[in-house]
Amino acid sequence: MTASSREVYRDAVLDLLPRDERLVCLDSDTGLFDSAQFPERYVNLGIAEHTLMGAAAGLAKSGRMPLVNTMAAFASSRANEAVKIDIALNNLPVRIAATHSGVSAGHLGPTHHALEDLAVMRTLPNMTVVVPADGPQTGTLFRQALRLTGPVYLRLGRNATPELPDAPPVTLGLAQVLRDGADVTIAACGPYPVLAALDAADTLAAEGVSASVLNVHTVKPLDVATIAAHAGRSGIVVTVEEHWRNAGFGAAVAESLAEIAPNLVLRVAMPDAFVPVSGGQRYLAERGGVTSAAVAAKARSALGRDPR
């Protein structure tokens, strides 16, 4: 089964909008929505991302709960000052649905890739940062996020990604434990990183290494307790993300664990470079080194095992 997180989000919006007067869908000409489906409370402001974020703040301040739609690159970089000052500083209930995150924009190129957004958004006070790992949990986490009183950054993809197999229920703010192991903890964030983590855990299991696999879908606030509990047994954490290695998810884990226990954190992430070639999301992520093989290799090196 595959589903696109942005389409799951869109369907959830279509379901919720008529039933919740607070919700207003603010669009920036993304094409995700068919305006004919919304008689009211859908506004396409045009290609104007600063105004999109500022207007969302004004709308929230006037009592609504705006659902803001743009691409991750434009939400996190182009419109960032409005996100910071108008939304985060006022701690307003704005939900930023950011599609095309990571390299999911694929062949659209580096202008449309967003490999900095977790770094940017997780530094903002009051912001909650959510990265669903598949379609179904996108719907669940989005609905849970509507209960929060402050702003939320929802990091979505462009195209369908596989559903996680046999995943337990997902709860905003709590890392989802997909595997429980004793030797190494793999903490992953995002669709392909979580799949890479599961695949690496299978490979390691065949080698006699038991790995915990955590789907850390909430990057802020980070569920340090669960990560630390799993790390505490092994002391070794490998992080996986579709984001630049600087200041992203792995960096967030490393920062937190460095303050509480002498853990070893090894990051699998996109290199500190733009992605100047065409390709699909999975191709570009793997080209950047975000692979199950890289995860397994990091785990082996931390455990002092020879590569096979």
């Binding site: 969302a56 709308l59 000052e81 108008d86």
Partner: peptide, 25 residues
């Protein structure tokens, strides 16, 4: 004071949001 300001060029976008909200209401 309704909203913080200081970085220039923010007020009019905020006002668009208030205007939309008032109209919806």
């Amino acid at each position: 004071v309704e909203m913080p300001s200081g970085s220039l060029g923010h007020g009019l976008a905020l006002a668009v949001g208030f205007g939309l909200g008032f109209r919806l209401d």
